[in-house]
Amino acid sequence: MDEKIQDIYLTNKKMRKKWQAFLEERGIKNFAENEVNLIQQTIGIFNEQDELIATGSLAGNVIKYVAVCDVISETKGARFNKIISELENRLSQVECFHYFVYTKPMYQKSFEHVGFKLLAATSLGILMEKGTPNITDYIASIPHFPIKKRIASIVMNANPFTKGHRFLVEKAASENDYVYVFVVNQDASLFKTNERIELIKRGTADLKNVVVVNGGDYMVSYVSFASYFIKNTDQIIKYQTMLDAKIFKNNIIKPLGITSRYLGSEPFSHTTSLYNDALKKELGNDIQVIIVPRKKISGVTVSATKVREAIATGNFGEFTDYVPKTTADYIIQNMENIQLRIRERAEN
């Protein structure tokens, strides 16, 4: 039987319709434009009658939208293996050797057979990874503290690092022996990842029991929690926040001996407030989840959003009170560059 692999271009409306129908028949339902727009390439296997019989897509280092028709197949699973092989080859061509897949719980075994390992599972979907450096390598790369100590954790984007962030870190540092500050790794914010990490390091340099580490793919990333960066429905946000919380629970807490996670209360962002709920629910039985009310200065809640708006409108002078001197100095030194980036982002 002659079956061939071909690229599928979703910009072709007819093809897109065919592709979507094929996936829908196999129970994949989320075709929100935000999600589909993240796809960089899609491949399909077509039979002699030019019917689509298997497909898979790549969005960065995430394998998505995999579906296979096993009817009239020589061997069960042959087409699935072919699709995954081809996707992995394409990933290796761009030097990507560590990747993820979202799938339904029922397909866990199929992906295990081709070398994927489970990171977190919910009833709606599971997240698996393959390749290197994986979660074990990630944990090994982080400084470890003596176990049986009070070890706090905070995950922050800090776009940029404000006095609000500082307040949260300070509180955790004063109430614990050690504090991990995990920084969101996704370069999707106004301040680049290395800038955000650097500003947190500078702004907490005096706190000797605090260590700042990159959160990698495992904490609030396109992989673990894409809705943090793109708009989505509540149902998807709830699913993703649950998954992100479970990754933390299953893979991060124990090897690092973490005993608490500190969160800032979230009066402004609906998504982040759902995230806080998920963390409380998922982590609450294992570690202390401490929600700290947001810091106010002269009665106004400090937020990085306000700082960014002030930079955009050139009123930063009025907001220097909101950020530590280390952040203020950096912004003033790089004002033109940051404003340029804001304009570019607005245009896109």
Partner: peptide, 13 residues
Amino acid sequence: SAIAGTLESSDVQ
């Protein structure tokens, strides 16, 4: 890192 082979029957990755 480098990869070779496929996941198809009778092959090795």
